[in-house]
Simulated assay, not measured.
Amino acid sequence: MEPNDPYALKLTPEMLLSAYAHGIFPMAENAQSNDLFWVDPDERGVIPLGNFHVSKSLKKKMRRNAFEVRVDTNFLAVVANCAAERHDSQETWINDEIVELYHALFRAGHCHTVEVWKAGNLVGGLYGIALGGAFFGESMFHKERDTSKIALAHLVDRLNVGGFQLLDTQFITDHLRSLGAIEISRANYHKQLNHALEIDADFYRLDGGGMSEDCLQSTSQIS
């Protein structure tokens, strides 16, 4: 997309939701870029919701209640931290247009955040899109060790309780692979996506900010 072109079609939140329903998502080259491009990977990263790996040390940390998990309380802070979180040498792909579009989807109830707080400070979190029974994870960050994992563990718990069938991570990293993420073919992904979109899942079925112990034990693998 070329915003400087007077004949270019401006991307709207509705168009973005339609793109997700067709298995594609936008990215920018960097935060300063005025252009977005569509991505439909040959191999798609997903986390099977019944195969999320939680280490004993992480489970122990979550039980200490040192952190508070909140949902959908500060979208802009989560996205700002995701854009700034660069432990590798890569630039962020989150530009101003992406922030604006996803903020609009957040206000409309389609975009969600899972936030990890400690002593009143946001120390970890993630955001993504919920559509039918599919959740499309966009980005996550941590300021303290394991706080992005805590956010992801809570998300998986919430998706399982809410009846979701697909957790899309888009791409796969060694970090995500260690938590149970796998790569599937584009054809397999679209098949799973089409099935998930037919489901009327509920992101808010899990009340409160804590983990569901029964759900954690029954749907996650402890290693």
Rank of each mutant, 00 (worst) to 15 (best):
P6E: 09
S218H: 14
L197D: 14
C215P: 12
A77P: 04
Y204N: 14
G209K: 02
S57M: 11
D168L: 01
A80L: 03
L179N: 10
L101C: 03
A31M: 00
L105G: 07
G137L: 06
N34T: 13
H53M: 09
L179G: 03
A84N: 12
C111R: 01
C82S: 02
H154Q: 05
M211V: 08
D35G: 02
N188A: 15
M27R: 04
E100K: 09
S89P: 10
K59Q: 07
F37Y: 15
E138L: 00
R44E: 11
V46M: 12
K60Q: 09
K10Q: 15
G109N: 03
L122N: 02
G209M: 05
Q221Y: 15
R107K: 09
V79A: 06
F75W: 04
I184R: 07
T73Q: 06
A151Q: 07
I24D: 05
S223G: 13
H110L: 04
D207H: 07
G124A: 05
Q192G: 07
N188I: 11
P13F: 01
D200K: 10
L167W: 13
T173R: 04
Y20L: 01
A77E: 09
I94L: 01
S139M: 11
E85L: 02
M211Y: 12
D72M: 00
N160D: 12
M27S: 01
M211R: 04
Q192I: 06
M62K: 00
R63P: 14
T147F: 03
H87W: 08
A19L: 02
A104P: 14
S139K: 00
L159E: 11
H175N: 12
D146V: 06
I199R: 06
H195A: 11
S185C: 03
A28G: 10
E85Q: 07
I98R: 01
N34F: 14
Q221M: 08
I182D: 12
K149C: 05
A134M: 07
I199G: 08
P3W: 05
A153N: 02
L167K: 03
A104R: 08
I184S: 11
A77M: 11
L152S: 05
